[in-house]
Protein backbone atom coordinates (compact mmCIF):
# COMPACT_ATOMS: atom_id res chain seq x y z
CA UNK A 1 0.00 0.00 0.00
CA UNK A 2 1.26 3.44 -0.89
CA UNK A 3 2.05 5.48 2.21
CA UNK A 4 1.12 9.14 2.39
CA UNK A 5 1.81 9.60 6.07
CA UNK A 6 5.43 9.70 7.15
CA UNK A 7 5.50 8.25 10.65
CA UNK A 8 9.11 9.22 11.24
CA UNK A 9 8.40 12.90 10.76
CA UNK A 10 5.39 12.63 13.06
CA UNK A 11 7.52 10.99 15.74
CA UNK A 12 10.12 13.74 15.42
CA UNK A 13 7.55 16.47 15.94
CA UNK A 14 5.81 14.75 18.81
CA UNK A 15 7.97 16.00 21.65
CA UNK A 16 7.58 19.64 20.64
CA UNK A 17 3.82 19.20 20.43
CA UNK A 18 3.76 17.72 23.90
CA UNK A 19 5.92 20.53 25.25
CA UNK A 20 3.57 23.06 23.66
CA UNK A 21 0.63 21.35 25.33
CA UNK A 22 2.37 21.57 28.71
CA UNK A 23 3.25 25.22 28.19
CA UNK A 24 -0.30 26.13 27.36
CA UNK A 25 -1.62 24.12 30.27
CA UNK A 26 0.61 26.27 32.49
CA UNK A 27 -0.62 29.41 30.79
CA UNK A 28 -4.28 28.43 31.24
CA UNK A 29 -3.63 27.63 34.88
CA UNK A 30 -1.91 30.96 35.49
CA UNK A 31 -4.85 32.77 33.91
CA UNK A 32 -7.17 30.93 36.25
CA UNK A 33 -4.98 31.91 39.17
CA UNK A 34 -5.18 35.55 38.10
CA UNK A 35 -8.82 35.78 39.17
CA UNK A 36 -8.04 34.17 42.51
CA UNK A 37 -5.06 36.44 42.99
CA UNK A 38 -7.15 39.56 42.39
CA UNK A 39 -9.69 38.35 44.90
CA UNK A 40 -6.93 37.77 47.43
CA UNK A 41 -5.36 41.21 46.92
CA UNK A 42 -8.75 42.89 47.06
CA UNK A 43 -9.68 41.28 50.36
CA UNK A 44 -6.24 41.87 51.82
CA UNK A 45 -6.31 45.58 50.90
CA UNK A 46 -9.78 46.14 52.25
CA UNK A 47 -9.15 44.30 55.49
CA UNK A 48 -5.85 46.06 56.23
CA UNK A 49 -7.27 49.47 55.31
CA UNK A 50 -10.63 49.15 57.00
CA UNK A 51 -10.18 46.99 60.08
CA UNK A 52 -8.82 49.89 62.15
CA UNK A 53 -12.09 51.78 61.90
CA UNK A 54 -14.33 48.91 62.83
CA UNK A 55 -15.52 49.13 66.41
CA UNK A 56 -18.81 49.54 68.22
CA UNK A 57 -18.83 53.29 67.50
CA UNK A 58 -18.64 52.62 63.77
CA UNK A 59 -22.02 50.90 63.98
CA UNK A 60 -23.51 53.45 66.37
CA UNK A 61 -22.45 56.69 64.67
CA UNK A 62 -24.11 58.49 61.83
CA UNK A 63 -22.11 59.87 58.93
CA UNK A 64 -19.79 62.69 59.94
CA UNK A 65 -17.52 65.24 58.35
CA UNK A 66 -14.70 63.98 60.51
CA UNK A 67 -13.43 60.52 59.57
CA UNK A 68 -12.82 59.39 63.17
CA UNK A 69 -16.47 60.02 64.04
CA UNK A 70 -17.94 58.58 60.87
CA UNK A 71 -20.21 55.58 61.24
CA UNK A 72 -22.59 53.46 59.24
CA UNK A 73 -25.63 53.43 61.50
CA UNK A 74 -27.97 55.12 59.01
CA UNK A 75 -26.65 53.12 56.05
CA UNK A 76 -26.72 49.76 57.82
CA UNK A 77 -30.25 50.21 59.16
CA UNK A 78 -31.25 51.69 55.79
CA UNK A 79 -30.07 48.57 53.98
CA UNK A 80 -32.23 46.48 56.28
CA UNK A 81 -35.22 48.76 55.56
CA UNK A 82 -34.60 48.33 51.85
CA UNK A 83 -34.59 44.55 52.25
CA UNK A 84 -37.90 44.71 54.10
CA UNK A 85 -39.46 46.07 50.91
CA UNK A 86 -37.43 44.16 48.30
CA UNK A 87 -37.69 40.67 49.83
CA UNK A 88 -41.48 40.26 49.86
CA UNK A 89 -42.18 42.23 46.68
CA UNK A 90 -39.59 40.50 44.52
CA UNK A 91 -40.29 37.03 45.96
CA UNK A 92 -44.05 37.23 45.44
CA UNK A 93 -43.74 38.63 41.94
CA UNK A 94 -40.84 36.39 40.97
CA UNK A 95 -42.23 33.13 42.29
CA UNK A 96 -45.70 33.97 40.93
CA UNK A 97 -44.26 34.54 37.48
CA UNK A 98 -42.22 31.34 37.68
CA UNK A 99 -45.27 29.29 38.71
CA UNK A 100 -47.27 30.81 35.89
CA UNK A 101 -44.61 30.09 33.29
CA UNK A 102 -43.83 26.56 34.46
CA UNK A 103 -47.24 25.29 35.52
CA UNK A 104 -49.99 27.30 33.86
CA UNK A 105 -48.70 28.97 30.70
CA UNK A 106 -49.63 27.41 27.40
CA UNK A 107 -46.95 27.03 24.81
CA UNK A 108 -47.81 29.98 22.61
CA UNK A 109 -46.31 33.15 21.20
CA UNK A 110 -47.32 35.22 24.22
CA UNK A 111 -45.56 32.88 26.65
CA UNK A 112 -42.37 32.84 24.64
CA UNK A 113 -42.60 36.62 24.43
CA UNK A 114 -42.74 36.82 28.24
CA UNK A 115 -39.71 34.54 28.44
CA UNK A 116 -37.75 36.54 25.88
CA UNK A 117 -38.72 39.69 27.73
CA UNK A 118 -37.42 38.34 31.04
CA UNK A 119 -34.07 37.37 29.62
CA UNK A 120 -33.74 40.78 28.01
CA UNK A 121 -34.73 42.49 31.23
CA UNK A 122 -31.87 40.67 32.94
CA UNK A 123 -29.48 42.37 30.54
CA UNK A 124 -30.74 45.93 31.03
CA UNK A 125 -28.09 48.02 32.85
CA UNK A 126 -29.06 48.72 36.45
CA UNK A 127 -28.78 52.46 35.92
CA UNK A 128 -31.62 52.30 33.39
CA UNK A 129 -33.82 50.79 36.11
CA UNK A 130 -32.94 53.90 38.07
CA UNK A 131 -34.36 56.08 35.28
CA UNK A 132 -37.54 53.98 35.33
CA UNK A 133 -37.82 54.33 39.11
CA UNK A 134 -37.21 58.06 38.94
CA UNK A 135 -39.98 58.61 36.39
CA UNK A 136 -42.59 56.14 37.65
CA UNK A 137 -42.11 55.79 41.40
CA UNK A 138 -40.45 59.03 42.45
CA UNK A 139 -42.29 61.42 40.12
CA UNK A 140 -45.46 59.87 38.67
CA UNK A 141 -46.55 58.03 41.82
CA UNK A 142 -45.05 60.80 43.97
CA UNK A 143 -43.36 58.39 46.36
CA UNK A 144 -40.43 60.83 46.57
CA UNK A 145 -37.02 59.50 47.65
CA UNK A 146 -38.54 56.99 50.03
CA UNK A 147 -37.68 53.48 51.11
CA UNK A 148 -40.72 52.35 49.13
CA UNK A 149 -39.65 54.01 45.87
CA UNK A 150 -36.13 52.60 46.22
CA UNK A 151 -37.46 49.18 47.23
CA UNK A 152 -39.83 48.91 44.28
CA UNK A 153 -37.12 49.98 41.84
CA UNK A 154 -34.73 47.42 43.31
CA UNK A 155 -37.40 44.71 43.24
CA UNK A 156 -37.89 45.15 39.51
CA UNK A 157 -34.13 45.04 39.04
CA UNK A 158 -33.65 41.68 40.78
CA UNK A 159 -36.91 40.18 39.52
CA UNK A 160 -35.34 38.32 36.56
CA UNK A 161 -32.82 36.64 38.89
CA UNK A 162 -35.59 35.30 41.13
CA UNK A 163 -37.80 34.26 38.21
CA UNK A 164 -35.04 32.26 36.53
CA UNK A 165 -33.92 30.57 39.78
CA UNK A 166 -37.52 29.71 40.72
CA UNK A 167 -38.28 28.39 37.24
CA UNK A 168 -35.28 26.07 37.49
CA UNK A 169 -36.32 24.92 40.95
CA UNK A 170 -39.90 24.24 39.85
CA UNK A 171 -38.77 22.49 36.69
CA UNK A 172 -36.56 20.13 38.67
CA UNK A 173 -39.53 18.77 40.62
CA UNK A 174 -40.20 15.45 38.91
CA UNK A 175 -43.37 14.96 36.88
CA UNK A 176 -44.17 11.82 38.87
CA UNK A 177 -44.83 13.85 42.03
CA UNK A 178 -47.37 16.02 40.23
CA UNK A 179 -49.01 12.99 38.66
CA UNK A 180 -49.29 11.28 42.02
CA UNK A 181 -51.11 14.31 43.39
CA UNK A 182 -53.43 14.65 40.39
CA UNK A 183 -54.19 10.94 40.52
CA UNK A 184 -55.70 11.42 43.96
CA UNK A 185 -58.06 14.04 42.63
CA UNK A 186 -56.14 17.12 43.78
CA UNK A 187 -56.68 20.30 41.82
CA UNK A 188 -53.89 22.08 40.00
CA UNK A 189 -53.49 24.77 42.65
CA UNK A 190 -53.52 22.22 45.47
CA UNK A 191 -50.81 20.31 43.66
CA UNK A 192 -48.73 23.42 43.09
CA UNK A 193 -49.13 24.67 46.63
CA UNK A 194 -48.77 21.41 48.54
CA UNK A 195 -46.45 19.34 46.33
CA UNK A 196 -44.50 21.42 43.84
CA UNK A 197 -43.66 24.49 45.93
CA UNK A 198 -42.47 22.61 49.03
CA UNK A 199 -40.18 20.52 46.85
CA UNK A 200 -38.90 23.59 45.04
CA UNK A 201 -38.41 25.80 48.08
CA UNK A 202 -34.66 25.25 48.61
CA UNK A 203 -33.94 26.29 45.04
CA UNK A 204 -36.25 29.28 45.29
CA UNK A 205 -34.69 30.40 48.57
CA UNK A 206 -31.18 30.07 47.19
CA UNK A 207 -32.12 32.21 44.20
CA UNK A 208 -33.92 34.66 46.46
CA UNK A 209 -30.94 35.16 48.73
CA UNK A 210 -28.62 35.66 45.77
CA UNK A 211 -31.04 38.23 44.36
CA UNK A 212 -31.18 40.05 47.70
CA UNK A 213 -27.42 40.15 47.93
CA UNK A 214 -27.39 41.69 44.48
CA UNK A 215 -29.85 44.31 45.73
CA UNK A 216 -27.69 45.05 48.77
CA UNK A 217 -24.67 45.85 46.63
CA UNK A 218 -26.38 47.86 43.90
CA UNK A 219 -25.67 51.57 43.89
CA UNK A 220 -26.42 53.04 40.48
CA UNK A 221 -30.25 52.93 40.44
CA UNK A 222 -30.41 54.50 43.90
CA UNK A 223 -28.15 57.34 42.84
CA UNK A 224 -30.44 58.05 39.90
CA UNK A 225 -33.61 58.11 41.96
CA UNK A 226 -31.87 60.55 44.25
CA UNK A 227 -31.37 58.65 47.49
CA UNK A 228 -29.19 60.89 49.67
CA UNK A 229 -25.68 59.85 50.70
CA UNK A 230 -25.35 61.87 53.86
CA UNK A 231 -28.09 61.10 56.33
CA UNK A 232 -28.09 61.64 60.08
CA UNK A 233 -31.42 60.07 60.98
CA UNK A 234 -33.25 56.77 60.64
CA UNK A 235 -36.44 56.22 58.61
CA UNK A 236 -39.59 55.66 60.69
CA UNK A 237 -41.88 54.44 57.90
CA UNK A 238 -41.33 53.19 54.40
CA UNK A 239 -42.33 56.63 53.14
CA UNK A 240 -39.26 58.27 54.74
CA UNK A 241 -36.01 58.92 52.98
CA UNK A 242 -32.89 56.96 53.93
CA UNK A 243 -29.49 55.81 52.70
CA UNK A 244 -27.85 52.40 52.21
CA UNK A 245 -24.37 50.88 52.60
CA UNK A 246 -23.14 51.16 49.00
CA UNK A 247 -24.31 54.79 48.78
CA UNK A 248 -22.43 55.62 51.96
CA UNK A 249 -19.35 53.83 50.64
CA UNK A 250 -19.58 55.72 47.36
CA UNK A 251 -19.78 58.97 49.27
CA UNK A 252 -16.69 58.18 51.34
CA UNK A 253 -14.76 56.90 48.32
CA UNK A 254 -15.31 60.08 46.36
CA UNK A 255 -13.96 62.32 49.12
CA UNK A 256 -10.43 63.58 48.62
CA UNK A 257 -9.10 62.89 52.17
CA UNK A 258 -7.30 59.56 52.37
CA UNK A 259 -8.73 58.94 55.85
CA UNK A 260 -12.15 58.70 54.30
CA UNK A 261 -10.86 56.00 51.97
CA UNK A 262 -10.03 53.93 55.04
CA UNK A 263 -13.52 54.60 56.36
CA UNK A 264 -14.85 53.50 52.97
CA UNK A 265 -12.80 50.29 53.29
CA UNK A 266 -14.35 49.71 56.71
CA UNK A 267 -17.81 50.17 55.20
CA UNK A 268 -16.94 47.76 52.38
CA UNK A 269 -15.73 45.26 54.93
CA UNK A 270 -19.07 45.37 56.73
CA UNK A 271 -20.96 45.00 53.46
CA UNK A 272 -18.77 42.11 52.25
CA UNK A 273 -19.17 40.26 55.54
CA UNK A 274 -22.93 40.68 55.23
CA UNK A 275 -22.86 39.39 51.64
CA UNK A 276 -20.59 36.45 52.44
CA UNK A 277 -22.91 35.53 55.29
CA UNK A 278 -25.91 35.58 52.99
CA UNK A 279 -24.08 33.60 50.30
CA UNK A 280 -23.01 31.01 52.85
CA UNK A 281 -26.64 30.60 53.87
CA UNK A 282 -27.58 30.16 50.21
CA UNK A 283 -24.84 27.56 49.69
CA UNK A 284 -25.88 25.81 52.90
CA UNK A 285 -29.49 25.61 51.75
CA UNK A 286 -28.42 24.42 48.33
CA UNK A 287 -26.26 21.65 49.75
CA UNK A 288 -28.44 20.46 52.61
CA UNK A 289 -32.03 20.84 51.53
CA UNK A 290 -31.85 20.27 47.82
CA UNK A 291 -33.43 16.87 47.33
CA UNK A 292 -32.03 14.59 44.70
CA UNK A 293 -34.72 12.74 42.88
Amino acid sequence: MQKLVDKEIIAKQMSSRIIRNQMFKGLFFLSTLFGLLVLGVLFYRIITQGIGYIDLDFFQNFASRRPENAGIKAAFIGTIWLMVVVAPVSLILGVGTAIYLEEYAKKNKFTSFIKLNISNLAGVPSIVFGLLGLTIFVRALALERSVLAAGLTMSLLVLPVIIVASQEAIRSVPKELREASFAMGATKWQTVLKVVLPAAIPGILTGGILALSRAIGETAPLIVIGIPMFVAFLPKTIMDTFTVLPMQIYNWTSRPQTEFQDVAAAGILVMLVLLILMNSIAVFIRNHFQKRY
Binding site: L4, V5, I9, I10, Q13, R17
Partner: peptide, 18 residues
Protein backbone atom coordinates in the same frame (compact mmCIF):
# COMPACT_ATOMS: atom_id res chain seq x y z
CA UNK B 1 -3.01 14.35 9.43
CA UNK B 2 -3.22 18.09 10.15
CA UNK B 3 -2.46 17.86 13.85
CA UNK B 4 0.41 15.56 13.01
CA UNK B 5 1.92 18.30 10.86
CA UNK B 6 0.77 17.44 7.34
CA UNK B 7 -0.18 20.80 5.88
CA UNK B 8 0.20 20.30 2.11
CA UNK B 9 -3.26 20.71 0.59
CA UNK B 10 -2.58 18.23 -2.23
CA UNK B 11 -1.37 15.53 0.12
CA UNK B 12 -4.35 16.15 2.38
CA UNK B 13 -6.76 15.84 -0.55
CA UNK B 14 -5.13 12.57 -1.46
CA UNK B 15 -5.29 11.28 2.10
CA UNK B 16 -8.97 12.23 2.38
CA UNK B 17 -9.89 10.42 -0.81
CA UNK B 18 -7.80 7.37 0.01
Amino acid sequence: PKIHGIKNKKVLDEIVEK
